[in-house]
Design a protein around this nucleic acid. Sequence first.
DNA 1: CTAGTAATACTTGTCTACAAGTTCATTAAA
DNA 2: TTTAATGAACTTGTAGACAAGTATTACTAG
Lengths: 224, 224
Amino acid sequence: MIVDARQSGESARDYAYRILKENIISTELKPGSLVSENETAAKLGLSRTPVREAIYDLAKVSIIETIPQKGSFVALIDPKMVEEARFLRKVLDVAVIRLACQEIDPEILKALEDNIDLQEFYLSKGNAEKIYELDNEFHRLIYVAAHKEIICELKSNMLIHFDRVRSLSVETVRDMKIVADHSGMLAAIKEHDEEKAVALVEKHLSRYHFDEELIRGQFPDYFK
Amino acid sequence: MIVDARQSGESARDYAYRILKENIISTELKPGSLVSENETAAKLGLSRTPVREAIYDLAKVSIIETIPQKGSFVALIDPKMVEEARFLRKVLDVAVIRLACQEIDPEILKALEDNIDLQEFYLSKGNAEKIYELDNEFHRLIYVAAHKEIICELKSNMLIHFDRVRSLSVETVRDMKIVADHSGMLAAIKEHDEEKAVALVEKHLSRYHFDEELIRGQFPDYFK
DNA sequence: CTAGTAATACTTGTCTACAAGTTCATTAAA
DNA sequence: TTTAATGAACTTGTAGACAAGTATTACTAG
């Protein structure tokens, strides 16, 4: 497990959650592997309590399965679960961008514009990691524009299933297209053009195709 | 706080969660009131740990607000939050019933039919509480039909905001209409008629109108 | 050598104790 | 009387111990 430092102001629980989530998405913690509360607590320099809470959070969206008196295990990749995550994201993203098209706060609009400027900057630098972060933030801002922050949070938790298979996929160079998609969405929001925005969201999501057979061929043990 | 007995096979954590949720929805635990971990644990005959975990779960959907070293408080009614819950329910219910219309397992269909028979039975008996339970179960079954169980769970958690204001509303006699709505939805699913089903879902949800001014007039202290 | 059993080393579930911070009431001083 | 300080009684955050259950391993009996 890769453990980076605890950020200032981060509670023990949040710290444990962040580290576990990162390691699950990257499959540094392999699907099916045991995540012991004691062992994790020791590695993070915490007691069991906050670690236990973080594990429980992850279990709530079935990315960890806890079996009483046996252990907590990173869930095997379950195509059904990946589909639930994909479905949730699509349904909510579409519904939320419709709201954003209807009315948007100038401040949020500014934040979206700044975000895209940064995306283009890092695209020219070829910094994929930064684009990944900005991508997440861009979509979150649309939820903020629609005043649906809690829903965004719920979605994020579920998205772990999706992000994990994404991280296993061969990363083709598609950052350019992603940034262009975002640009188009922002334009649609400015023009209050719901249909255009929705079409773009759907196109955008289609770029993250889950090629189950391919990944299953490479990592058969990771699957349910 | 009204505490009924712990069910067999129910973990301490689940028990605490269930009791707290019921008391929050019924406003037996008043908006703004303190929910002390120690006090709750004592009342339920548990230790702090499982109670703490239950409180944390509720805090995740902002129905409880925990302030470190100060306390955990039942959230005041926040119309924004009620709206987020309503929005989530509508968007998901619509998306999910579309899937159910496309394809439905005969077993689930049977369960839906049985459920409606029971609804009609209890309607004739005038048993509102049973209808409430069957109502929840009916909608859950549609999620099961669409293979979206986890999403259903996430929605349920958020719905607490919605259910709480619903429980504060004067209960007009509308059970009849609700049961009829369900009947219509089932028919639409059988006929694979998506548009009809969606129209019914939207009509159905419109019956749960949140009359903010009315409730605010009656319980001004409960609001944010 | 094999089969069964007992010990052991794990796991999570729960409980209790302590640490750190907030609030509020009481008390003492001006 | 008013005001400021102090301490008691709360709160949650974290830590660690014990209980109960499981799986493995080593050992003993046949």
